[in-house]
Simulated assay, not measured.
Amino acid sequence: MYSIIRFGSLCGLALVIGFYTSHLALGSTTDNFTTGEIVGYSVMFISSLAIIMGIKDYKQKRSPAPLGFMGALGVGLGISLIAAHIFILYNWFYLVFINPTFTSSYIRYSEQKIISSGLEPTVIEQQLSELADYADLVGNNFTPSMMMFATVFVIGLLFSIVSAIALRTPRK
């Protein structure tokens, strides 16, 4: 359990530091949204290395007892859940206190991308309609935060599955 809490906190802290540093370095202008997305996903993947380290740490502490796939997967998922909870709190704090205009700026940025896409007018109209529905959905701070929770957790799930396969103790 100690490995799960320690490495889950480490992963969550890495996410918070990475995203906040990205915000400080790139700012929140629409010119940097694409770069911000690339940096954001990179931070998520790099911080997920804590899952591998956490499963290895847990396995070493269990030694010589074997660690099966399900045990390793459980450790990885525990780390992912803790990190995702830490990150949802940061994301909510970011949207409420650090950058309360982020969601509306991102919607306006998306509108401009659609309008300047050069697509057929009917396709543009359809995409703008879908964007308006999306804007209604993310109009509060809960939904975007939950989307970030899900993103971090799904990336963590993938890391957990691969790590559990690679780090399990093979049956004899």
Rank of each mutant, 00 (worst) to 15 (best):
F45E: 06
D133G: 07
G139I: 10
M70H: 11
L13K: 04
G74Y: 04
S110M: 09
S105P: 12
G118K: 08
M1C: 11
L10H: 00
I115L: 15
Y109W: 11
Y90D: 01
L10G: 01
R6S: 15
A164K: 04
A14C: 07
P170G: 13
I5F: 07
G8P: 03
Q127G: 03
P100H: 01
D136G: 14
V154Y: 02
F7V: 01
R6G: 12
I161Y: 06
H85C: 15
L13V: 14
V96N: 12
T21V: 15
F19R: 02
F69R: 01
F45S: 05
Y134S: 04
M147C: 06
A135Q: 15
P170F: 13
L167E: 12
L89H: 11
L128G: 01
V154R: 01
G74M: 03
M70D: 07
K172L: 12
A14T: 09
I86R: 08
T101H: 08
G74S: 06
G68R: 09
S28D: 14
Y58P: 03
P66F: 13
S3K: 07
I79G: 08
M70E: 10
S104Q: 09
L89R: 07
I115A: 13
G74L: 03
T151N: 12
T30N: 05
I98A: 11
I46R: 12
I82R: 13
L157D: 02
F87Q: 02
I79R: 15
T21P: 05
F149V: 07
Y90N: 05
E120W: 00
S22M: 07
M53E: 13
I155N: 04
N141I: 09
F97S: 11
T35S: 04
I55F: 03
G18Q: 08
T30C: 02
S47G: 06
E130R: 10
A150D: 09
F7R: 06
V96L: 10
T103F: 14
G36N: 03
I82A: 13
F87V: 08
L157Q: 02
D57A: 15
L157R: 00
R6P: 09
I155L: 10
G78F: 04
S145K: 05
A83I: 03
F142S: 12
A164D: 05
G12V: 00
N141G: 07
I17A: 08
I107R: 00
W92S: 06
M44F: 12
L131S: 01
A50V: 04
R108Y: 15
Y2N: 15
L24C: 03
I165N: 00
S117E: 00
M146Y: 09
F93L: 13
N91D: 14
S28P: 01
L15I: 07
F142K: 08
S116Y: 00
A164N: 09
I165K: 05
T30K: 08
L89G: 11
A166T: 09
Q60K: 08
S42W: 06
K113H: 13
I4W: 15
F87K: 00
L95C: 02
N99T: 07
F149I: 07
Y109G: 11
A135R: 11
I4S: 07
Y41A: 15
L95A: 01
K59S: 01
Y134W: 08
A166Y: 13
Y106G: 07
W92K: 12
V123L: 12
P64G: 00
Y2W: 15
Y41G: 11
